[in-house]
Design a protein around this nucleic acid. Structure first.
Length: 298
DNA sequence: AAGATTCTCAACCGCTAGTGG
DNA sequence: ACCACTAGCGGTTGAGAATCT
Protein backbone atom coordinates (compact mmCIF):
# COMPACT_ATOMS: atom_id res chain seq x y z
CA UNK A 1 0.00 0.00 0.00
CA UNK A 2 1.44 3.30 -1.02
CA UNK A 3 0.84 6.59 0.64
CA UNK A 4 -2.69 7.83 0.01
CA UNK A 5 -2.92 10.96 -2.10
CA UNK A 6 -3.28 14.12 -0.07
CA UNK A 7 -6.62 14.81 -1.73
CA UNK A 8 -8.16 11.42 -1.02
CA UNK A 9 -10.05 12.76 1.92
CA UNK A 10 -13.80 12.73 1.65
CA UNK A 11 -15.21 15.95 0.29
CA UNK A 12 -12.01 17.24 -1.24
CA UNK A 13 -12.71 18.35 -4.75
CA UNK A 14 -10.44 17.55 -7.67
CA UNK A 15 -10.30 18.51 -11.29
CA UNK A 16 -10.61 21.86 -13.06
CA UNK A 17 -11.23 24.94 -11.00
CA UNK A 18 -14.48 26.81 -11.39
CA UNK A 19 -14.67 30.62 -11.62
CA UNK A 20 -16.29 30.68 -8.20
CA UNK A 21 -13.42 28.78 -6.65
CA UNK A 22 -10.92 31.08 -8.35
CA UNK A 23 -12.67 34.09 -6.91
CA UNK A 24 -12.74 32.61 -3.45
CA UNK A 25 -9.05 31.81 -3.62
CA UNK A 26 -8.04 35.17 -5.05
CA UNK A 27 -10.20 36.98 -2.53
CA UNK A 28 -8.71 35.02 0.32
CA UNK A 29 -5.16 35.66 -0.81
CA UNK A 30 -6.04 39.26 -1.45
CA UNK A 31 -7.02 39.51 2.17
CA UNK A 32 -4.46 37.32 3.87
CA UNK A 33 -1.62 37.08 1.43
CA UNK A 34 -0.20 33.91 -0.05
CA UNK A 35 1.49 31.29 2.06
CA UNK A 36 0.17 29.09 4.86
CA UNK A 37 -1.48 26.98 2.21
CA UNK A 38 -2.56 24.40 4.71
CA UNK A 39 -4.91 26.91 6.30
CA UNK A 40 -6.43 28.18 3.08
CA UNK A 41 -8.95 25.41 2.40
CA UNK A 42 -10.21 25.51 5.97
CA UNK A 43 -10.31 29.28 6.30
CA UNK A 44 -11.60 30.11 2.84
CA UNK A 45 -14.19 27.37 2.69
CA UNK A 46 -12.74 25.87 -0.46
CA UNK A 47 -13.20 22.14 -0.85
CA UNK A 48 -9.70 21.78 -2.22
CA UNK A 49 -6.50 20.50 -0.74
CA UNK A 50 -3.74 22.94 0.10
CA UNK A 51 -1.57 21.67 -2.71
CA UNK A 52 -4.25 22.29 -5.24
CA UNK A 53 -4.73 25.85 -3.95
CA UNK A 54 -1.02 26.59 -4.09
CA UNK A 55 -0.73 25.17 -7.57
CA UNK A 56 -3.72 27.05 -8.83
CA UNK A 57 -2.33 30.26 -7.43
CA UNK A 58 1.27 29.88 -8.56
CA UNK A 59 0.48 28.53 -11.98
CA UNK A 60 -2.53 30.52 -12.91
CA UNK A 61 -3.92 33.17 -10.63
CA UNK A 62 -0.72 34.81 -9.44
CA UNK A 63 -0.31 38.27 -10.97
CA UNK A 64 2.40 38.89 -13.50
CA UNK A 65 2.04 35.64 -15.35
CA UNK A 66 2.38 35.93 -19.08
CA UNK A 67 0.50 33.50 -21.21
CA UNK A 68 0.49 32.78 -24.89
CA UNK A 69 3.26 31.71 -27.17
CA UNK A 70 6.88 32.03 -26.19
CA UNK A 71 9.09 34.54 -27.95
CA UNK A 72 12.25 33.52 -29.76
CA UNK A 73 14.27 35.11 -27.02
CA UNK A 74 12.44 33.14 -24.37
CA UNK A 75 12.92 30.00 -26.39
CA UNK A 76 16.64 30.55 -26.72
CA UNK A 77 16.93 31.29 -23.05
CA UNK A 78 15.08 28.10 -22.17
CA UNK A 79 17.23 26.03 -24.49
CA UNK A 80 20.39 27.38 -22.97
CA UNK A 81 19.18 27.12 -19.41
CA UNK A 82 17.91 23.61 -19.96
CA UNK A 83 21.30 22.61 -21.30
CA UNK A 84 22.94 24.21 -18.32
CA UNK A 85 20.57 23.22 -15.54
CA UNK A 86 18.79 20.17 -16.86
CA UNK A 87 15.12 19.73 -16.08
CA UNK A 88 15.16 22.06 -13.12
CA UNK A 89 12.15 23.94 -14.28
CA UNK A 90 11.76 26.06 -11.18
CA UNK A 91 15.33 27.28 -11.56
CA UNK A 92 14.77 27.97 -15.24
CA UNK A 93 11.53 29.76 -14.44
CA UNK A 94 13.37 32.08 -12.10
CA UNK A 95 15.00 33.58 -15.18
CA UNK A 96 11.63 34.07 -16.83
CA UNK A 97 9.62 35.75 -14.10
CA UNK A 98 6.51 35.96 -16.23
CA UNK A 99 6.45 32.24 -16.92
CA UNK A 100 5.70 29.48 -14.48
CA UNK A 101 7.79 26.36 -14.14
CA UNK A 102 4.78 24.33 -15.19
CA UNK A 103 4.39 26.46 -18.29
CA UNK A 104 8.02 26.10 -19.24
CA UNK A 105 7.95 22.39 -18.54
CA UNK A 106 4.88 21.96 -20.71
CA UNK A 107 6.33 24.07 -23.45
CA UNK A 108 9.55 22.12 -23.39
CA UNK A 109 7.81 18.76 -23.46
CA UNK A 110 5.43 19.68 -26.24
CA UNK A 111 7.03 22.24 -28.51
CA UNK A 112 10.72 22.35 -27.94
CA UNK A 113 11.59 18.70 -27.67
CA UNK A 114 9.89 18.23 -30.97
CA UNK A 115 11.55 21.24 -32.49
CA UNK A 116 15.00 20.26 -31.33
CA UNK A 117 14.50 16.72 -32.52
CA UNK A 118 13.48 18.01 -35.92
CA UNK A 119 16.48 20.30 -36.06
CA UNK A 120 18.74 17.47 -35.09
CA UNK A 121 17.28 15.21 -37.76
CA UNK A 122 17.73 17.91 -40.34
CA UNK A 123 21.28 18.43 -39.23
CA UNK A 124 22.01 14.72 -39.41
CA UNK A 125 20.57 14.59 -42.89
CA UNK A 126 22.62 17.56 -43.95
CA UNK A 127 25.68 16.26 -42.19
CA UNK A 128 26.11 19.41 -40.14
CA UNK A 129 27.22 19.42 -36.58
CA UNK A 130 23.95 20.20 -34.89
CA UNK A 131 23.87 16.79 -33.29
CA UNK A 132 26.69 17.98 -31.11
CA UNK A 133 24.52 20.76 -29.85
CA UNK A 134 21.62 19.00 -28.27
CA UNK A 135 22.48 15.93 -26.23
CA UNK A 136 21.56 16.73 -22.72
CA UNK A 137 21.36 13.60 -20.67
CA UNK A 138 25.00 12.70 -20.97
CA UNK A 139 27.15 14.87 -18.81
CA UNK A 140 24.13 16.58 -17.33
CA UNK A 141 25.13 15.87 -13.78
CA UNK A 142 28.49 17.50 -14.37
CA UNK A 143 26.80 20.68 -15.50
CA UNK A 144 24.44 20.57 -12.58
CA UNK A 145 27.31 20.07 -10.23
CA UNK A 146 29.15 22.98 -11.75
CA UNK A 147 26.08 25.18 -11.42
CA UNK A 148 25.72 24.19 -7.81
CA UNK A 149 29.38 24.94 -7.19
CA UNK A 150 29.02 28.34 -8.79
CA UNK A 151 25.92 29.07 -6.78
CA UNK A 152 27.60 27.94 -3.59
CA UNK A 153 30.58 30.16 -4.31
CA UNK A 154 28.26 33.05 -4.94
CA UNK A 155 26.33 32.45 -1.75
CA UNK A 156 29.54 32.19 0.22
CA UNK A 157 30.79 35.40 -1.27
CA UNK A 158 27.57 37.15 -0.35
CA UNK A 159 27.65 35.77 3.15
CA UNK A 160 31.22 36.88 3.66
CA UNK A 161 30.62 40.35 2.34
CA UNK A 162 27.89 40.83 4.96
CA UNK A 163 26.15 43.25 2.66
CA UNK A 164 24.11 42.16 -0.33
CA UNK A 165 26.07 42.95 -3.47
CA UNK A 166 24.94 45.91 -5.48
CA UNK A 167 24.40 43.95 -8.64
CA UNK A 168 21.45 42.24 -7.07
CA UNK A 169 19.67 45.53 -7.13
CA UNK A 170 20.76 46.44 -10.60
CA UNK A 171 19.46 43.68 -12.76
CA UNK A 172 17.49 44.38 -15.87
CA UNK A 173 14.06 45.89 -15.36
CA UNK A 174 12.39 43.02 -17.15
CA UNK A 175 13.76 40.68 -14.55
CA UNK A 176 13.41 42.89 -11.60
CA UNK A 177 10.75 40.99 -9.77
CA UNK A 178 13.10 39.34 -7.38
CA UNK A 179 15.63 42.05 -7.14
CA UNK A 180 13.64 44.98 -5.92
CA UNK A 181 15.53 46.87 -3.31
CA UNK A 182 12.33 47.49 -1.43
CA UNK A 183 11.29 44.71 0.87
CA UNK A 184 7.67 43.62 0.76
CA UNK A 185 5.60 46.06 2.67
CA UNK A 186 2.03 46.86 3.37
CA UNK A 187 2.20 49.65 0.82
CA UNK A 188 3.16 47.37 -2.01
CA UNK A 189 0.66 44.88 -0.76
CA UNK A 190 -2.03 47.47 -1.19
CA UNK A 191 -0.92 48.21 -4.72
CA UNK A 192 -1.35 44.67 -5.75
CA UNK A 193 -4.50 44.28 -3.79
CA UNK A 194 -5.86 47.03 -5.93
CA UNK A 195 -4.82 45.14 -9.02
CA UNK A 196 -6.55 42.03 -7.84
CA UNK A 197 -9.71 43.79 -6.87
CA UNK A 198 -9.82 45.46 -10.26
CA UNK A 199 -9.31 42.06 -11.68
CA UNK A 200 -12.28 40.71 -9.85
CA UNK A 201 -14.34 43.70 -10.79
CA UNK A 202 -13.61 43.16 -14.47
CA UNK A 203 -14.21 39.50 -14.16
CA UNK A 204 -17.69 39.91 -12.79
CA UNK A 205 -18.48 42.36 -15.56
CA UNK A 206 -17.64 39.79 -18.20
CA UNK A 207 -19.95 36.83 -18.44
CA UNK A 208 -17.67 33.87 -18.17
CA UNK A 209 -18.41 30.87 -20.27
CA UNK A 210 -18.91 27.75 -18.26
CA UNK A 211 -15.68 26.24 -19.40
CA UNK A 212 -12.69 26.22 -17.16
CA UNK A 213 -10.46 27.28 -20.04
CA UNK A 214 -12.34 30.46 -20.76
CA UNK A 215 -12.46 31.17 -17.08
CA UNK A 216 -8.78 30.72 -16.74
CA UNK A 217 -8.19 33.04 -19.61
CA UNK A 218 -10.46 35.75 -18.36
CA UNK A 219 -9.16 35.60 -14.85
CA UNK A 220 -5.63 35.67 -16.08
CA UNK A 221 -6.29 38.66 -18.27
CA UNK A 222 -7.57 40.42 -15.27
CA UNK A 223 -4.63 39.41 -13.20
CA UNK A 224 -2.43 41.06 -15.75
CA UNK A 225 -3.93 44.47 -15.19
CA UNK A 226 -0.45 45.92 -15.14
CA UNK A 227 0.06 45.00 -18.73
CA UNK A 228 -1.26 45.91 -22.11
CA UNK A 229 -2.42 43.13 -24.30
CA UNK A 230 -1.66 42.87 -27.95
CA UNK A 231 -3.05 40.32 -30.30
CA UNK A 232 -0.57 38.84 -32.66
CA UNK A 233 -1.27 37.58 -36.15
CA UNK A 234 -1.73 34.05 -34.91
CA UNK A 235 -4.42 35.20 -32.56
CA UNK A 236 -2.47 34.78 -29.39
CA UNK A 237 -2.67 37.49 -26.82
CA UNK A 238 0.57 38.85 -25.55
CA UNK A 239 0.93 41.05 -22.54
CA UNK A 240 3.45 43.82 -22.50
CA UNK A 241 4.39 45.87 -19.47
CA UNK A 242 2.31 48.92 -18.92
CA UNK A 243 4.39 51.51 -17.18
CA UNK A 244 1.42 53.29 -15.74
CA UNK A 245 0.62 50.45 -13.49
CA UNK A 246 2.36 49.19 -10.45
CA UNK A 247 3.96 45.98 -11.50
CA UNK A 248 2.25 43.15 -9.72
CA UNK A 249 5.64 41.61 -9.25
CA UNK A 250 6.82 44.48 -7.19
CA UNK A 251 3.86 44.37 -4.94
CA UNK A 252 2.19 42.10 -2.51
CA UNK A 253 2.76 38.90 -4.33
CA UNK A 254 6.43 39.21 -4.10
CA UNK A 255 5.83 38.00 -0.61
CA UNK A 256 5.46 34.48 -1.83
CA UNK A 257 8.33 34.67 -4.25
CA UNK A 258 11.15 32.43 -3.27
CA UNK A 259 14.76 33.54 -3.53
CA UNK A 260 15.33 33.09 -7.19
CA UNK A 261 18.28 31.51 -8.82
CA UNK A 262 18.89 34.92 -10.27
CA UNK A 263 19.36 36.33 -6.81
CA UNK A 264 21.80 33.68 -5.94
CA UNK A 265 23.54 33.72 -9.27
CA UNK A 266 23.03 37.11 -10.82
CA UNK A 267 21.58 37.29 -14.28
CA UNK A 268 23.99 39.96 -15.38
CA UNK A 269 26.90 37.56 -15.16
CA UNK A 270 25.52 35.02 -17.54
CA UNK A 271 22.95 36.82 -19.57
CA UNK A 272 25.46 37.79 -22.20
CA UNK A 273 26.29 34.30 -23.18
CA UNK A 274 22.77 33.06 -22.65
CA UNK A 275 21.40 35.52 -25.14
CA UNK A 276 24.31 35.64 -27.52
CA UNK A 277 24.60 32.49 -29.59
CA UNK A 278 27.92 33.63 -30.98
CA UNK A 279 29.46 34.54 -27.71
CA UNK A 280 31.88 31.95 -26.48
CA UNK A 281 30.88 32.45 -22.92
CA UNK A 282 28.98 29.23 -22.46
CA UNK A 283 31.82 27.22 -23.79
CA UNK A 284 34.25 29.26 -21.84
CA UNK A 285 32.45 28.79 -18.58
CA UNK A 286 31.97 25.10 -19.06
CA UNK A 287 35.31 24.41 -20.62
CA UNK A 288 37.05 26.03 -17.75
CA UNK A 289 35.55 23.72 -15.25
CA UNK A 290 34.28 20.59 -16.83
CA UNK A 291 35.87 17.69 -18.54
CA UNK A 292 35.24 16.70 -22.13
CA UNK A 293 31.62 15.89 -21.40
CA UNK A 294 30.84 19.56 -21.51
CA UNK A 295 32.09 19.90 -25.07
CA UNK A 296 29.01 18.25 -26.40
CA UNK A 297 27.19 21.40 -25.49
CA UNK A 298 26.98 24.18 -28.05
C1' DA B 1 -20.03 15.78 -41.50
C1' DA B 2 -18.13 12.57 -38.52
C1' DG B 3 -14.95 9.70 -36.44
C1' DA B 4 -10.00 9.07 -35.42
C1' DT B 5 -5.86 10.85 -34.12
C1' DT B 6 -2.78 14.18 -32.25
C1' DC B 7 -1.76 18.09 -29.47
C1' DT B 8 -1.99 21.09 -25.50
C1' DC B 9 -1.80 22.25 -20.88
C1' DA B 10 -4.11 22.39 -16.22
C1' DA B 11 -4.00 19.56 -12.56
C1' DC B 12 -2.57 15.67 -10.02
C1' DC B 13 0.78 12.41 -7.73
C1' DG B 14 4.67 11.15 -5.27
C1' DC B 15 8.91 12.37 -3.69
C1' DT B 16 12.32 15.39 -1.30
C1' DA B 17 13.89 19.35 1.34
C1' DG B 18 13.23 22.32 4.96
C1' DT B 19 11.62 23.45 9.51
C1' DG B 20 10.12 23.18 14.19
C1' DG B 21 9.24 20.60 18.34
C1' DA C 1 18.94 12.55 16.41
C1' DC C 2 14.37 11.73 15.42
C1' DC C 3 9.72 12.56 14.00
C1' DA C 4 5.86 15.08 12.06
C1' DC C 5 4.42 18.25 9.11
C1' DT C 6 4.36 21.59 5.19
C1' DA C 7 6.01 23.58 0.93
C1' DG C 8 7.95 22.95 -3.33
C1' DC C 9 9.51 20.39 -7.32
C1' DG C 10 9.46 17.39 -11.43
C1' DG C 11 7.12 13.70 -13.85
C1' DT C 12 2.85 12.19 -15.50
C1' DT C 13 -1.99 12.04 -16.70
C1' DG C 14 -6.21 12.96 -18.91
C1' DA C 15 -9.87 16.06 -20.67
C1' DG C 16 -10.79 19.07 -24.14
C1' DA C 17 -9.37 21.33 -28.44
C1' DA C 18 -7.45 21.11 -32.87
C1' DT C 19 -6.32 18.76 -36.87
C1' DC C 20 -6.47 15.04 -40.04
C1' DT C 21 -8.65 11.44 -42.84
Amino acid sequence: MGRPPCCDKFGVKKGPWTPEEDIILVSYIQEHGPGNWKAIPTNSGLSRCSKSCRLRWTNYLRPGIKRGSFTDQEENLIIHLQALLGNRWAAIASYLPERTDNDIKNYWNTHMKKKLRRMENEAVEEGTGFSNYQPIAKGQWERRLQTDINMAKQALQEALSMEKPRFLYESKPSCSSHSSSTPPSSTTYASSTENISRLLENWTRKTPKNSSKSTQHSVNNLVNVGTDSTTSSDGTITSVPNNNMVSPETGLFQVDSKPSLEERFPLSLIETWLFDENYGGANTVLDLSLDDASHELF
